[in-house]
Design a protein around this nucleic acid. Structure first.
Lengths: 177, 177
DNA sequence: CTGAACTTTCAGTAATATCTGAAACATATG
DNA sequence: CATATGTTTCAGATATTACTGAAAGTTCAG
């Protein structure tokens, strides 16, 4: 926690760099790479779009790393490519609307994790249908219950995904009351 | 996908081992270690509690690894230590109730990830309160919005945590209608 | 107390995930 | 074209995380 000697106050740049670093650490606790989360934090909290070179510079990372993670963010839909007149370079700007960010991540994780998990659970039941015995019963029962729950969670997720911020808040207000 | 040559059907053990393996892979996409997820899957889908040695044997892992991850599961509250009469060893049994499993994980992640994130967001606002300029405005605005959203999500999570399965289903039914 | 049964720790090793830097590729400009 | 500018790829290097196995620690029965 670097700070100016005199006042005990840190500059915007110091606070922001700190934020970006820690946000990256959070990201890596999830399945997201540290750099991807950092770039997202960088673009999200800045006023302007940035080029690959600016991102490299600001985060002290290699071109390859910057490139790969920027494109990964674009593929998630969390970052868009924009143009600046008179410039040939690509510039990147982040989605800033938190509800949109949330639904994008929700959708992506459903697709990448929930759906395959559901399929696994269904297959396991299908394949052990014909087997009897205490072991098979225990296995099937638990897998069935997991499937019910995961399927249920998936439905809730899909529904929430379709909501926009306002209605979602209203619904939550009801829940929280 | 090993299967018996004659029938095209796999045995319970084959299907279950496959399930455990894949469940472990899902776990490692989250912040959970592969082994921890595998042990949980193993205990959850079996009819009986198991000793450390049985877990080692079934998953072909070392004693140290089995031990560490079993204790980690116990610290999460996903696994309990039980005794068997006439045996000095510790036996481990998993929580099987899916709603309980869900709320345990929810609570643990709130504590480990959401709360620290909220603190970060609050600090960042506090520390940049006094700074002006377009960069500072953009930063503060975005951080504020993130804080609102994360705080909101935390509240919803806490509320859900306190629900039991029945009421939760009812609520969800309303949401899904 | 002594040894057997069991649990815990941890230094070293292995596996995995991530990053770098440079070369290949693509495209626009004069 | 030839060159400059910008993008993409990827083999090798590095960093991070997880695992092993053996030794030390603990507990209990006789």
């Amino acid at each position: 926690m670097k700070e100016t000697a005199e006042t005990g106050k840190r500059t915007l740049e110091e606070v922001r760099d700190d934020f970006i670093g820690q946000w990256g650490a959070f990201g890596s606790q999830w399945g997201i790479s540290r750099t991807m989360a950092q770039i997202h934090a960088l673009l999200m909290t800045g006023p302007d779009s940035m080029s690959t070179d600016e991102v490299m510079e600001k985060l002290s990372i290699s071109r390859g790393n910057a490139h790969t993670n920027l494109k990964e963010l674009v593929s998630w839909g969390l970052v868009r490519i924009t143009a600046r007149k008179g410039e040939r370079k690509e510039f990147f700007e982040a989605e800033k609307d938190v509800w949109k960010i949330f639904t994008i991540i929700l959708r992506e994780r459903q697709r990448r994790e929930i759906d395959p998990a559901l399929e696994l659970l269904r297959n396991c039941q299908e394949e052990t249908k014909h087997i009897s015995g205490v072991g098979a019963e225990a296995f099937r029962k638990q897998v069935k219950e997991l499937e019910n729950f995961v399927g249920f969670a998936r439905n809730v997720g899909s529904k929430v995904d379709k909501l926009s911020y306002g209605p979602a808040m209203k619904l939550a207000a009801k829940l929280l009351s």
